[in-house]
Every structure is written in structure tokens, then in C-alpha cells.
Amino acid sequence: MDVTQTLDRAPAAPALVAAEAPLAKWALVGLALLFLGFFLFLPLVAIFAQAFESGPSAYWAAVADADSRSAFGLTLVAALVAVPINVIFGIAAAWAVARFDFPGKGFLVSLIDLPFAVSPVIAGLVFVLLFGMQGYFGPWLAERDIQIVFAVPGILLATLFVTVPFVARELIPLMQEQGSEEEQAAISLGAGGWQTFFRITIPNIRWGLLYGVVLLNARAIGEFGAVSVVSGHIRGETNTAPLHVEILYNEYNFAAAFAVASVLAIFALVTIAAKAGIELKTGMHGRTR
């Protein structure tokens, strides 16, 4: 009898919670929306409003200016170098970590996270320390007339460094979860190593890989701190788009600064759309980072 009563009463408890829920729910949702509107949407609107303040022609002039174009070009080059290299590294590292046991595996995984853990400014300083004139390899490089810091190679190195974790971080849990049975099956069916890699491994990780690439690309384009330290801010030569925004802003050229910034913002919106598209496709909803 007791049992029956408990069972009868059981649904009442969730009903009580449900009755309380709407108020709390809407309060929380409202708070979140208010926060997002204030801290994210408003600034976004402000960027475009400022960018177009002096009219479309001024906007276009700022974006198409030689220094701006050079900055966009360098940013693009940095992304074009960082993406393929870190994709290859990320796949290789994830493969090694997910498929094999070896001494130092935990250390490798922690090391991959290092660029997330240290401040980008420190990452930039490390390269100055290594390759700058007062750095360890500076004199040796100077003798051979090779310039890394305050030149394009330094920017590429800094971008590479800060974007190391994205693909590997995305793929390690995915490949661990999927296991290697399908690959073993492919090999037992007569497939070679590359056939197995391109026909089985890559298709199985393709959405995770794409997700990683989108995030990696966004960071490569948006990186400021590390690149700022090694760049030297030479207009038309070692200026990336984010650095160019800062220079324009410091020169009180607000319209131009916001125009260049709006291009970066548009890219960010495209990235978010791509990321959402991938999440929709793979059911990775609610995943953070």
C-alpha cells in the first residue's frame, strides 16, 4: 500500500518544479539576452555604425587603401600558412595520441594546450627572445642576413604558435571515441595505409576536422597579442589587419579603423555561421569551444 501511494504521488513532484520553472526560466533567458545584447550585439552594431559614419565612399576608401590591402594580404598569408601546417600537425598528433601508447603521452597532450595556457604576448616575446637581435639565434641569423622578428617570418611563427591546439584538441577525443576498429577492418580487407587514411580515417573525422579548421582560421586571422610583439608595426610590410585597426585608431582615424574592423567582423560572422552549420550537421549542439 505504501508503495502504491509513493508511486501515485511521484508525478506530483516534477509538476511542482514545472510550475515554478517558467518564471525562473524567463528570468534567466532574459538576463542572458540582456547581457549578450549589451556586450556582444551592441558593439557589433557600433562597429558598422562607426564604419559607415562618413558614408559608403569613405568606407570603401579606407578598406581599399594600399596599407589596408597590404594588411589584409598579410593576414590572409598568415592564415594560409597556419591552417595547413596546423591541420597536418593536429591530425598527426591526434592520431598518435588516440591510437598509440607511448611514454610522455600525457606530457604531449599538455604541451599541445600550452598556447591556450600562456598569454599571447608571452608567446610573441618568446620569439623575440629566440630570434631577435639580443636573442639566442639573433647574431647567427643577422650574420646570414635572415630577419625573423619584425618581419613576415616572425608573424607566421607567432600565428602558428597560437593556433597549434585547435585541430588536435578537436580530434583527440573524437578519434579516441571512434577507436581503430574500422581502420583494422579496412586493412584486413586489403586496403593499404594511405587508402585506409583517405577512405576511412578522414571521412570519419571530417566534421570534427572542419570544425577545428574554422576555429583555427578565425584565430589565425584575429590574433593580435603575439603578432603585435613580433611585428614591428611597419605599415604596408609587417602589419596584419588587427594591427592595422589599432594603428588607425591611435591616429584618431576612427572611421577607417572601424571600416577595417568591420571586415574582420564580417569574417567573424561568416565563421560563426560556418560553425553553426557544422554543429547542425553533426549534432554537436551545445559544445563549448
Binding site: 576498429e181 574500422e182 583494422q184 577492418a185 586493412i187 584486413s188 571521412p203 570519419n204
Partner: peptide, 20 residues
Amino acid sequence: RSARERRVGFVFQHYALFRH
């Protein structure tokens, strides 16, 4: 000889079908 060269048909416990 490698698994590839042995020409054996292997059926895995959880089948290991290619999901894609």
C-alpha cells in the same frame, strides 16, 4: 606477413562497419 597480405576475412565483434 601483414593482415593485408594474409587474405583473411575478419568479422569484428561490433562489426566495425564503415559508418560513412
